[in-house]
Design a protein around this nucleic acid. Structure first.
Lengths: 340, 340
DNA sequence: TTGTAAGCGTTATCAA
DNA sequence: TTGATAACGCTTACAA
């Protein structure tokens, strides 16, 4: 077993001091060419690499970014990680991923754990429990300590930090408007309870589109699911009883399932019922018929969040620049579940 | 901005030595009750938390696990991460996720980066490029340094380490047998090129099932895709020309798409054509008709890998126990794309 | 019962 | 041009 080699080993072997080795490997002007060459050759031969931990302790920079997300199974979060990874890696950062599992406690624990020196900054999306409790002390603790934080997608007004969101209201607005313009008058909306920021916004957009076009929306056609978790029974019951000619859903799983129930009850898609879902993931693409979707651009969101965070981390100036909220534009991807 | 408090601060404030503080916070018997209480109260008040980096440097233990996977968009890898996270967190470890993007170079870079002290061990699945090149020096370097490594799913014989795989051959074998037993005689197999370990194994299982039942398999009904990436054109062309009464695919994306093409050409599923896919993900569950799938138990795989790794990491005994390869059993989940 | 000092692997300042 | 030393924050053997 080849043990990892350190500056000390090289120094002893070549009978120079540790600091000479350190400088030589940094190609410092202070060291003579001969010595540098000798040391560099030796280091290369033994494949020397500085120990990240020691460097971190010294510099108080870990080059790690902590990402905390509610779950990893929803395609959207996956794409965000992918974007964060990409941007972070290109700037020499690693990504530590923690899952809160939609639990407040796990979110707090993970945050505390990482905040004790493991990372230079956080990128996170709030767990549903956190949004429900409206308890953001753990976030404030972290920002108080001067650790940069970027919230994305599920954010809160109560914490001062950089944010990246998509214009959820606009996404819902445009989807709704499209359907209304095509003559749909009985649109069903399957959304989530208002404590989830995305639920509120999307519902707002839905209502606003109706108002703007002077068409009444049907209160009883709005279903607010308790969480983003699939509960087939609730959706099935709702759609069985409701009178609708279109469905808009807060995520693609609900949408695909809604489509299924509609078909089961003899409705044709998109002729009888048009369906649009949030999140443009694999499900939407490969559903049958393929699903018209509101793309949330998760990868871009991740990249943007990472870029903002790294800028904050690497900002040397003492006068802090003000926090920003970047709002990305959703895109309607038209497929076969709506009339084009 | 509240700066992070250290032992030094507490020591100075309470006019004791740093080691007294350290011991008091560890509830050491050496320290008097009075002193301990005073110190603990102060630490609590100021919310003292030891700096992970300093502890890591001292103990040569980071409590971080590095996970390197080819991509994060395939549902299977996502579930593996989820399993690793779960097991790791429960044992006090964080998970650092790196994506190789199926690239050999990125795999090497990520590994080197993490190997320099950032993690206590690796869990990884080989990138396709690595399996193609058959160059595993980066893995050997790491194991030579005594860093534990657990390979999962895409593994290689060439590296001595713990491994977790599912019995891919068996999965394909059983799926094939089921179809043959139902009278299907013209099964099409959409797999991947042999350089990917999973491709080889699944093809073997397909062929073995035919042999065991004494039924000839159709060489021309086997399509080997260049990678796991979707290339609609290739699959569409293949299925358009082929004469088949069932399809088995190496992943659910291929399967769902295969189903689509079959339907487009007027075939009924499952009456005319039965379809089975590897990976039991969201796509399979919500496809229409829902897809019979060979579950790879990604979450269990992740948990198992993490458990094996942590055992290795925490093993104190000098006589190393031999490397293990755990083989998980796939499960056939029957849905509507096959006759039950 | 408390404190001193060495050490983990680096970097950086200052002295030789 | 090189080296000794202190420092990052913590742990621990040993001394007081």
């Amino acid at each position: 077993m080849k043990r990892k080699i350190t500056l000390k080993h090289i120094a002893k072997e070549l009978e120079v001091s540790i600091s000479t080795v350190s400088k030589a490997l940094k190609n410092s002007e202070e060291i003579s060419r001969d010595t540098k060459e000798k040391i560099q050759a030796f280091a290369k031969l033994y494949n020397y690499r500085p120990n990240n931990i020691a460097v971190s302790l010294k510099n108080k920079r870990t080059k790690n970014i902590g990402v905390i997300i509610p779950d990893i199974v929803h395609h959207f979060f996956t794409t965000v990680i992918s974007g964060v990874e990409k941007e972070a890696n290109s700037k020499g950062y690693n990504v530590i991923v923690c899952l809160s599992d939609e639990s407040f406690d796990k979110e707090v624990i993970n945050m505390e754990m990482l905040a004790n020196g493991s990372i230079d900054g956080f990128i996170m999306s709030l767990s549903s429990e956190t949004q429900q409790k409206k308890d953001y002390n753990h976030l404030k603790e972290v920002t108080d300590q001067g650790i940069p934080l970027v919230l994305f997608d599920r954010v809160t007004q109560s914490v001062d930090c950089d944010k990246v969101i998509i214009d959820d209201q606009l996404g819902a607005y445009e989807a709704t408007k499209k359907l209304l313009n095509q003559g749909k008058r009985k649109i069903a909306l399957i959304t989530v309870d208002d404590y989830l920021s995305v639920g509120t916004e999307r519902t707002k957009g839905f209502i606003r589109a109706h108002k703007d076009l002077g068409i009444p929306y049907l209160e009883k056609n709005i279903l607010k699911m308790p969480t983003m978790e699939m509960e087939e029974g609730i959706i099935r019951e709702f759609l069985t009883k409701a009178d609708y000619d279109a469905i808009i859903c807060v995520n693609e799983i609900f949408a695909v399932f809604g489509m299924k129930v509609a078909k089961e009850t003899g409705k044709k898609i998109p002729q009888d019922v048009s369906v649009i879902g949030f999140t443009d993931g694999l499900l939407s693409k490969y559903a049958n018929p393929s699903l018209t979707a509101i793309a949330q651009h998760g990868e871009l969101m991740g990249e943007t969040a990472a870029r903002m965070l790294i800028k904050r981390i690497e900002d040397e100036s003492d006068d802090e620049f003000p926090f920003q909220t970047k709002i990305l534009q959703p895109t309607l991807i038209e497929r076969d579940s709506t009339i084009n």
